[in-house]
Design a protein around this nucleic acid. Structure first.
Lengths: 249, 249
DNA sequence: CTATTGACATCTTATATAAGACATATCATT
DNA sequence: AATGATATGTCTTATATAAGATGTCAATAG
């Protein structure tokens, strides 16, 4: 039988199996932009040759990255870089569902887009110095012409130049799709914290509910490659006819 | 090289790859109780011989089941049936986190345990006829001696005989751990729907908050093998110092 | 002549099997 | 307490077949 080539196994505290090292290499290529969102990456055997490992090892690395939603396999066609432009993963991060029936098509209405400087909260969450320029976007998501989600989005201004209301109105893609295609910032993971709060004047007005009525507050920190936080979002969900859906396993 | 044995591939609309068929067979053995929670299942090669396939095919089946949290691999020891008794997966379905610091140890205080008959809601959700006997449990979860979660749990009485307050007080395991060890009912998946609601008199009293204050309502349907629903739970979370944590990817 | 069809080659990923090297836990022996 | 045998899962490689997607090209029908 074919003996595998001799390999120096560090066995040290920093040991990681070969397929994971390959995963890191592929990840680096993704991060560097060698293959853009929606592109096909080279075939498994090409990558195997390039990295000097067997096709099965590359396969295992890609398997994990497909499970992480970083890559998408399509039998007979190839393996593709995941993209928020793909209608399939358009609402990958939106866990909203209608209490009955299916979620109707949504409409995003930007309210205002302002420039500011990071306070302590935003600075801590986005890993930046207090006073760093940020962009604040407020918008409402409508479903069947009813306001359901009022979002406040905080972004580092450095990464999103020219971000404006006009720009948003000219594009009807999803926000993350826009981030990806216009600014080259791909969201790959997010952390959410959910609480119940009373509607303040602003969110009550935006969502057309009584001040003080209960709202679901969804605070999200979204990360790009390297676990770098690049968005903080506070979403107020009106949960009279909708709910946040989560599957546990 | 070794040719695989000739195999009748149905290619029909109901085709499923061999490793998935093996998965179903292992699942059937789990469901039948051949290997109980916490037990080690036979080695991959044993299973391969038993099912007449190669070890690698068994491995792929087990890989998926480990990803589904049905099995747990332990290098050098074996593969084990997942259990809610394992401290590791004790709070597998509880997504509660403290706003700052780590979640302190919890204390579960049962309030009442009553018998009733299923109304239309419970009957629909648990897939039973209206009027089927059910058990209703109400309890409060305390963290650092503060009430945080008020739970109403609806169970089919048939599956949970002898369920009573005394019985609960005599056991300080988690509820699912109890279900598993005492009634042989293993929860393997759950669906949750989250909403913000106003505290009614009962939940306000249980959680020591003002009536009308906002609470996070977490409605959960938990399933056992074969996607059979066996628990409906309405949890009211006081989210002043805690939150529901969810990771998206 | 043009458009459609069908056969075919050639990509790709998906599935299946086998085997060697190795890490880790258990247990009996020294 | 240390040693060594054994069993097991893990990691890697190799090979072969199946099947989906797609383009080429010739035959065919209109």
């Amino acid at each position: 039988m074919n003996r595998p080539p001799a390999r120096t196994l560090p066995l040290s505290p920093t040991f990681s199996p070969l397929y994971r090292q390959i995963k890191e290499l592929i990840l680096a290529s993704l991060e560097s932009g060698e293959w853009g969102p929606g592109d096909a990456i080279p075939s498994e055997s090409d990558l195997a040759q390039r990295f000097g490992v067997s096709q099965g090892t590359v396969r295992k690395a890609i398997d994990e990255m497909a499970a992480d939603n970083l890559l998408v396999r399509r039998q007979g066609k190839g393996t593709f870089v995941a993209t928020h432009n793909d209608p399939h993963s358009f609402f990958r991060f939106l866990r909203l569902a209608a209490n009955e029936g299916v979620l109707p098509t949504s409409r995003s209405v930007p309210l205002e887009c302002t420039r500011a400087r990071a306070g302590t909260d935003v600075a801590r969450i986005l890993g930046m110095a207090v006073g760093t320029p940020i962009v604040i976007l407020r918008r409402v998501l409508y479903f069947a012409d009813k306001p359901v989600v009022f979002d406040e989005v905080y972004l580092p201004a450095e990464l999103f130049p020219d971000f404006s209301l006009d720009f948003l109105n000219a594009n009807d893609e999803s926000l993350y799709s826009l981030f990806e295609s216009r600014y080259g910032v791909r969201m790959i993971r997010a952390d959410e914290r959910l609480r119940a709060v009373s509607a303040d004047r602003v969110s009550a007005a935006a969502l057309d509910v009584a001040e003080g009525s209960p709202l679901l507050l969804v605070e999200r920190v979204a990360f790009t490659y390297g676990d770098k936080p690049v968005e903080w979002r506070r979403g107020f969900y009106s949960t009279a006819n909708h709910h946040y859906h989560n599957e546990l396993s």
